[in-house]
Computed example of a mutant assay.
Amino acid sequence: MIRSEILREVAPILRDQLVVCNIGLPSQELHMIDDQPTNFYMLGTMGLASSIGLGLALSQPKTVVVIDGDGSVLTNLGTLPTIANNVADNYILLIVDNGSYGSTGDQPTYAGKKTSLTKVAEACGCENVVECRAEETGEVLQKAIDAKRMTIIVCKCESGNVKVPVITKDPVVIRDRFMAAVAS
């Protein structure tokens, strides 16, 4: 399975959650698959979805699911010790690990070579880290939501992209409707 297939599978599970989605193709894919006011699409800051999601989880009680990529997490490795040391049981980080920088042409990441983001997260002190195959992602995500315990999920999948349109919504509109969803 590739990232877009995983997003299609988990989209129904995400409908009742606050979602922060990584920059580039992941946001475009989620927007195309199931645009919701509860989805915050990152449009210009690689590596910060996990940090923004953690801040959101720490500031309010609703469940926050962050969809991030291995390349993005690798650009902000400081996020993993920050997550480990600021536990929010309403926070789930779903790292879609396809071993590549999917949005820029599928160049390999170090997670596609020797680096295990599962082991890195554990070494940083994250206590509930689950690695799964792409086909298991929906089940693992639902269990994490039901457990109400901070969880890092590293979903191993194939590299690959589908053609998607760019998000034409104004960033201010995306922000405002998301803020309204957080407040409701």
Rank of each mutant, 00 (worst) to 15 (best):
G55F: 09
V162N: 12
P81C: 03
G102D: 08
V164K: 06
L7I: 03
E29R: 08
N128I: 12
V130K: 13
R15Y: 03
E127T: 10
H31Y: 14
V130Y: 08
A111E: 06
N90K: 04
E9L: 05
S50K: 01
G125Q: 01
L117N: 09
E136A: 10
N85H: 11
S100R: 15
D97E: 06
T63S: 09
S159L: 11
F178S: 03
V162H: 13
G78I: 01
Q17G: 03
G55A: 12
I33H: 07
A147H: 01
C124T: 07
E5I: 00
T45Y: 15
A183M: 09
I33W: 06
I67Q: 03
T115F: 14
L56G: 11
G47Q: 02
C155I: 07
V64R: 07
I153C: 06
G55I: 13
K143Y: 04
V73W: 14
T168A: 06
L56K: 06
N86S: 10
P81K: 00
V172P: 13
S51P: 03
L74Q: 13
E139Y: 00
V120R: 07
M150K: 14
I174W: 04
L58K: 14
K62D: 02
L117M: 06
V173H: 15
G102I: 10
E122W: 14
I145G: 07
V172W: 11
K114I: 13
P26S: 00
Q142C: 08
N128K: 14
S72R: 06
G160N: 07
L30D: 02
V164G: 07
K148A: 03
E158F: 00
V182L: 09
D176Q: 08
T82H: 11
K114C: 15
I95Q: 06
V96D: 02
D176M: 05
V140W: 01
Y101H: 14
E135K: 10
F40C: 09
D16N: 13
N90W: 09
A134I: 02
Y41C: 07
G55K: 13
L74N: 14
I23C: 07
N90R: 02
V162Q: 13
K119C: 02
V120I: 13
